[in-house]
């Protein structure tokens, strides 16, 4: 009754930990998107604020997509290849764009 794939699995569970790190980061992004929506709808809800809030939610979806693709890759193989620079850059730029939307909302 020894499970077959266990022999080849990384005992340190590195892919799993990386997967959870992506999930945690997406969750942090969710908090930011929710706060952005709250700020956008709070007090008046001008067209500019609503646009920036909606943009934040779209950026969150982009981040979710990046995370999901990476997680699928991590789950598909026992020896995942390293993260490609476009993914890392896209994830960071999503974060930066959220901050820019935030600046518009706060102002």
């Amino acid at each position: 009754m020894t499970p077959e794939p266990a022999a080849d699995r990384d005992p340190g569970l590195q892919p799993e930990r990386t997967r959870l790190a992506w999930r945690r980061t997406t969750l942090s992004g969710t908090v930011v998107a929710v706060l952005a929506a709250k700020t956008a709808l709070h007090g008046g809800a001008s067209p500019a604020a609503v646009t920036a809030g909606a943009l934040c939610c779209v950026l969150w979806l982009c981040f979710l997509r990046i995370a999901h693709r990476r997680i699928r890759h991590l789950a598909s193989t026992n020896r995942p290849s390293s993260l490609g620079p476009p993914y890392a850059t896209a994830a960071a730029l999503c974060t930066v764009a959220m901050a820019v939307c935030g600046a518009v909302l706060v102002f």
Binding site: A21, S28, L35
Partner: peptide, 22 residues
């Protein structure tokens, strides 16, 4: 993968700062 997780931890820090701004 460890490098990737460090990157993600920094990204979470960035997101926390942005959330703090809001």
């Amino acid at each position: 993968l460890a490098n990737e997780r460090t990157f993600l931890a920094w990204l979470r820090t960035a997101l926390a700062l942005i959330g703090g701004g809001f």
